[in-house]
Amino acid sequence: MSLSLFDDPPQPAQPPEVLEPGAMVLRGFALRQAADLLAAVQQITSQAPFRHLVTPGGLRMSVAMTNCGELGWVSDRSGYRYDPIDPDSGQAWPAMPPLFHQLALDAAQAAGFSGFAPDACLVNRYAPGTRLSLHQDRDEGNYAHPIVSVSLGIPALFLWGGAQRADKTRRIALLHGDVVVWGGPARLRFHGVLPLPEARHPLTSTSRINLTFRKAG
């Protein structure tokens, strides 16, 4: 793909793209902060490097991930859970940068969810060919809080499903700077990401970085 496809000229604010009640895409919402967000990701990964987790069934996840915030999402043969300690280092996860917290709060507010205070941010790195299978975000236990998902780097096709895994899915193109927010009646919808295409972005090379904010504690 040509780099011109990923140029990011200033864009006027766009109205939210409603997927269903409680879920919407905020196009370009994180665009102005993108470079600073990615610089913060580098600082986070210098303390807690990307790693490929193992599922309870013993499968290696194709998406590399790490965390920041009071809690981090982890997976191993004993199950999925949130933990205040990075199992690789034995230390607390890096603190969530104020920029991250404010972006999550602002995006949630724009989607109609006021007072969002995330305590966990999953940082995922997608390489060409990697994907995220359909799943629900259920490990938080309390579903009163929304999910805020920020896309940075090369585009991806986001799968938006229903209340059951077998429900029909919609394919939604997510571009650099787009933010998806879902909560309320849409909080437990199945979602995923199709295999990432071969592409290049000026800020992330051949990768896509996804920040997913949650209230887990």
Rank of each mutant, 00 (worst) to 15 (best):
V41G: 01
W93C: 02
I172R: 04
D139R: 12
D88W: 12
Q136S: 08
Q43F: 13
I154T: 02
I209R: 00
P84M: 09
R131Q: 15
S78F: 00
R81P: 01
L26A: 03
R170Q: 10
D7A: 14
A95P: 00
A13N: 11
S207I: 02
R60V: 10
A163V: 13
I209W: 02
Q109H: 14
F100W: 03
A23N: 03
G217C: 12
P155V: 09
P118C: 14
R125P: 01
P87N: 05
V181L: 11
R170I: 07
M96W: 01
W73Y: 11
A163M: 15
G217H: 05
V18W: 15
R189S: 07
L122Y: 02
W93M: 04
A110T: 10
S2R: 05
Q33H: 15
P155R: 13
V179Q: 06
L211Q: 03
G115S: 07
R131P: 03
V63L: 00
H201W: 02
S62Y: 14
E140P: 09
P146Y: 08
E17T: 13
D137N: 07
L5Y: 10
L71V: 09
V54G: 05
D36I: 08
K215E: 15
R77P: 13
Y82R: 12
W182A: 04
S207W: 03
H191M: 10
E70G: 14
R214F: 06
F113V: 06
D8S: 14
V63N: 05
D7I: 12
L175V: 11
S2I: 05
F190S: 07
